[in-house]
Simulated assay, not measured.
Amino acid sequence: MTGPMPLDLASIRQAPKALLHDHLDGGLRPATVLELAADCGYDQLPARDAESLGAWFRDAADSGSLERYLETFAHTVAVMQTPEGLRRVARECAIDLAEDGVVYAEVRFAPEQHLEKGLTLDEVVEHTLAGFREGEALAAEKGNVIRVTCLLTAMRHAARSREIAELTVRFRDSGVGGFDIAGAEAGFPPTRHLDAFEYLRANHAHFTIHAGEAFGLPSIHEALAFCGCDRLGHGVRITDDISVPGAIEEAQLGLVANYVRDMRVPLELCPSSNVQTGAVPSLDKHPFDLLARLRFRVTVNTDNRLMSDTSMSEEMRKLVDTFGYGWSDLERFTINAMKSAFIPFPDRLKIIDEVIKPGYAVLLG
């Protein structure tokens, strides 16, 4: 081959990808939701066939409201209450990501939401991790190698964050890479969970915080200054602290934005989801390109593949079509993500040097 491969969806699928922000309960196959609902007797699904159900999730998530968007999870969480359900969803998650060219993924979920059938928090995590390992093995049999790391999420409106932080530390040698808090931001600041973050820091554990998605700069400031997070989940509202009066070279950054860029705090940007939840008005107005050009550590993520009817390849294609990115840009965003992963440095470097760089070298010709 001479010269780079054409930048289309098919070729993007061949590119090695690193994913940091993907919700397990937001990535189910519609057919799996239907089958698990039948198995566990859940009869409140809004559609009875996979195609219609997938369309319902996408349409319901397109409301432009984070709160309305989050309501769709009631159906997926409802079918993830048994060992079999958790293992299957995790197994299929790993397989689906691997088939899309994802070589490293961090998938998060909230164990506290999966206790309705009598499972303990530890059992929830054990079954989910087992599913990921099964999925990795099945993907490898098809020649699609992937490493999946699990992040444990605490719900910001609940009071179990310290318990989930302890769970994170307890399972960090078994496939759990870190901690997260999620849920509606307004009225539930991250500082409500300071005891959890203090415990994590005391135990040298990684954590990210959903901040700067539906709520503005104060959410980001608290996540960094008081909680001490390693990464920002979404973080699109960092642009509230950036002024661009003219050319990009004239951009003026406030104290928070300067800190995020100077300290290379990774931004877990999720283009399609950010539009769906109303965090940004449209894809062409997404701050991804501004932040990338200002050399923030931007990463590309799916957030919820079912609700956004998306994949990592789709998210990259949309960015290519919207902002004119080339292979070298996609490689940079992928390496940004891999540098920011919650696994040991040698492991990150190995994937960058032995998988990502060689993979993009082929695509670049």
Rank of each mutant, 00 (worst) to 15 (best):
S313G: 05
Y69W: 06
A361H: 15
H234G: 01
P4V: 03
P6I: 08
A341W: 02
P189K: 13
N304S: 07
A158T: 11
A105N: 06
P245W: 14
E315P: 00
K350E: 11
L53K: 06
L291C: 00
G228E: 13
Y360H: 03
S308N: 15
A50F: 05
A50P: 14
R13H: 07
G183R: 08
R156G: 07
R48Q: 10
Y69M: 04
V355K: 06
W327G: 01
F333N: 03
V77A: 05
E134N: 07
E354M: 14
G246H: 04
Y42D: 10
A50W: 02
V176L: 00
A31V: 06
P30V: 04
A38M: 08
I164G: 05
F296E: 00
A98S: 12
L306T: 02
P190A: 14
A186V: 15
T32P: 00
G228H: 06
A137N: 11
E185P: 05
L232F: 03
E185Q: 15
L97K: 14
T2Q: 07
D303L: 03
P245Q: 11
P16W: 08
A74Q: 12
P245H: 12
K339R: 14
R231K: 08
I95T: 08
F73D: 01
P16E: 10
S63I: 09
I12S: 04
M155R: 10
G26M: 11
V125M: 02
I220F: 13
S313M: 06
Q14L: 08
T120K: 00
P83I: 01
A37S: 07
W56D: 08
V79K: 02
F288D: 12
P190H: 11
M1C: 13
G54Y: 11
L319W: 07
E112M: 15
P344F: 06
S272P: 08
C229H: 08
V275K: 13
E35I: 11
E123V: 10
F132P: 02
F345D: 08
H206V: 14
E99Q: 12
G101F: 01
A140V: 14
R108N: 01
P83W: 01
S311W: 04
V89Y: 00
E222W: 08
A154M: 00
R295Q: 10
M312H: 10
S273W: 04
V275M: 12
G175M: 06
L97Q: 13
L232W: 03
R201Y: 03
G326N: 02
A154Q: 00
R68P: 14
R13L: 09
A202R: 06
D173M: 13
F188P: 01
G175F: 06
A47I: 13
P6G: 10
L36S: 02
L349V: 10
G3E: 09
K350D: 09
V102N: 04
L167H: 05
H127Q: 09
V355F: 12
P344W: 07
A247G: 15
D22E: 13
T76C: 00
D353T: 14
H206C: 05
Q252K: 15
T302C: 15
C270E: 04
F296W: 01
G27E: 04
E268D: 09
E136P: 12
